[in-house]
Structures are given as C-alpha cells and as structure tokens.
C-alpha cells in the first residue's frame, strides 16, 4: 500500500525523471525556435502547393478528357488511402535512386541564410522530400474541399456570367472562384492547422524541424520527455496563433456566408477550436429550370 502511494506520488510530481527546468530552459532556445520556423515554412509552402494541386485536380475531374478524370480520381484515391508517413519516407528513399540526394545536400541554402542554430544542418533533400509528400498529400484533401466549395455555388452564377459573354475560365476566375473561396476558407484553415502538426512526420527523414530538433536535443541531454513537452508547447503556440489569424481572416472575408448579417464565431472560439459547428456550410440555392 505504501509502495503504491509512493509510486503515485512520484508519478504525479514527476520528481525523479522529469525536470521542469529543462522545459523552461529549452522552450526559448535558438535551436528550438529555428526548428519552429522550419515547421512554419514547411507548412506554408506545402499548404500553398497543396491548394493549387487541389484546384488543378478539380478542373481535371470536371474536364472533358476521360484519361485526366480517371487519373485525378486515382491520384486522390491513392494519396488519401496510404499513410502520409509512408509517402514522406518513400520520397526520401526515392531521391538516392534518382542521384539527387548528394547534389541537393551540397547546396545547403539554409545554412547560407543563417539557419545554423540547430543540432545539425537542414538537409535540402529531406526538406524537398517533405514538401513533395506533404503538398501532394494535401492536394488530395484540398481537391475535395475545393469541389465542395465550387459545387456550393449556384449554377445560375456561371450561366449569368456566360450570358454576359464570359468564357468558362473568365467566369470561373471572376465570378465563381471568388465566391467559392469564401466557403473554402474555414476548412482550409483547419487543413493548415493539421498541416502544422503533420510536418512533424518529417522527423522520420532527419529534417531538423521542430520535433526532430527537440528529439535530438532531448536525447543528448537525457531529457527526452522534457523536450517533447517543449515541442508540444510550440505546436500549441503555433496552432493557437493560427487560430487567431483564421478568425481575423474569416471575419474580413465574411467567410462561408454571403449574408453580412449572420453571426460569426469570435476569434477566441476560433483560436481554441470551439464553436465551429457549422463552419463551411453554405446555403445552397436550388437551380432554376
């Protein structure tokens, strides 16, 4: 009985193996901050490319060319049906076969621009493999989100634009996509929140982003758990800041609702993830005959 109590006490206070001072020491460390910056860069680039890929997939799937339609469906099926971790590892493993790993490592642009605080260099081949896998994977998810956004726009909009002499591409660019974009914004924001955390899988391929940086420092200092907490604090900070921005952007764009009078979630609801119940729901207008 006494032994159990002692065990419980040591678990609760984490006295013997968890040292809080490590957490306070490493949370603001330059190496960790650099890792967080790499995570953000990776996320932003992958989200942008993923969104473009998703848009492209939408038009391929809606297009007239059967081979393209089938390829796009197959692409989405594949990237949504296999683990992101596998995709990241696969691209990283592929690069040596293409004989591009070494030349890429030799370039080392990150050191050149002052990313020298980490536990090691940021390998360009790891970075590119991660970007490739993350954006291709994200594209498959964005394709669905883009489709939902565009399909929510009444066909009467496209027809009205065409009746004024606009071509399909002009009508899309000027009339349909700007409206669809407002519907896409909330789920896109959630995708980016996921992206910030999914980049941690790049730790698998020796990319010194936030998690890998924390892991290396933790192992070297016998403080693995402390550094995982440090990394988690940073992920929480990043997603919270993003939630704050998401709230501002959505208010600016009257996101997901074209009626300016409708109530919208407060920024704090966005930041902490409450009150998102009907994000992305558009009021569909029945088409006329």
């Amino acid at each position: 009985m006494g032994g159990l109590l002692q065990w419980l006490q040591s678990v609760v206070t984490l006295n013997h193996f968890f040292v809080w001072t490590y957490v306070w020491k490493y949370t603001p460390a330059p190496a960790i901050i650099q890792g967080a910056i790499v995570t953000v860069i990776l996320s932003v680039i992958s989200q942008l490319l993923g969104t473009l890929i998703g848009l492209m997939l939408y038009f391929l799937r809606r297009g007239r060319i059967r081979v393209f339609r089938i390829s796009a469906d197959a692409y989405i099926w594949f990237f949504r049906g296999t683990p992101l971790a596998v995709q990241i590892l696969a691209f990283y493993t592929l690069f040596p076969y293409l004989h591009i790993s070494r030349p890429l490592r030799a370039i080392d642009p990150f050191s050149a621009i002052g990313f020298t605080h980490g536990p090691g260099p940021i390998f360009l081949d790891s970075f590119l493999a991660a970007i490739l896998a993350l954006s291709l994977n994200e594209g498959a998810y964005m394709a669905e989100i883009v489709r939902a956004g565009i399909d929510a726009i009444d066909v009467g909009q496209l027809e009205a634009a065409k009746s004024l002499g606009m071509t399909y591409s002009l009508a899309m660019r000027r009339i349909v996509l700007p409206q669809a974009f407002r519907i896409i914004i909330p789920p896109l924001g959630n995708e980016f929140n996921n992206m910030l955390k999914n980049t941690a899988l790049a730790a698998f391929i020796a990319l010194n982003e936030l998690l890998e940086t924390g892991r290396l420092i933790g192992d070297a200092n016998f403080a693995s758990l402390e550094l995982l907490v440090v990394a988690s604090l940073w992920y929480l900070l990043l997603t919270t800041i993003w939630g704050f921005f998401q709230g501002i952007i959505e208010r600016k764009l009257n996101a997901s609702n074209l009626d300016p009078g409708a109530p919208r979630p407060q920024w704090w609801q966005r930041a902490f993830g409450f009150g998102q119940g009907n994000a992305g729901v558009a009021t569909a207008v029945p088409a006329e005959h």
């Binding site: 009444d154 009467g156 909009q157 634009a161 009746s163 002499g165 399909y168």
Partner: peptide, 24 residues
C-alpha cells in the same frame, strides 16, 4: 469554339427568373 459562342452571347442579354446577380 467557346470564344465565338461567348462573342455571340455578349450581344444577347438575358434576364433570369432568379436574378442571378453576383453576390460578392
């Protein structure tokens, strides 16, 4: 061609039952 069709449509005005104004 799409361009020619668009060119002809540009000369024909159409008014729809449901207005179809661009809400943005």
């Amino acid at each position: 061609s799409e361009r020619n069709i668009a060119g002809i449509r540009a000369e024909i005005g159409m008014v729809f039952q449901r207005f179809n104004l661009f809400p943005h």
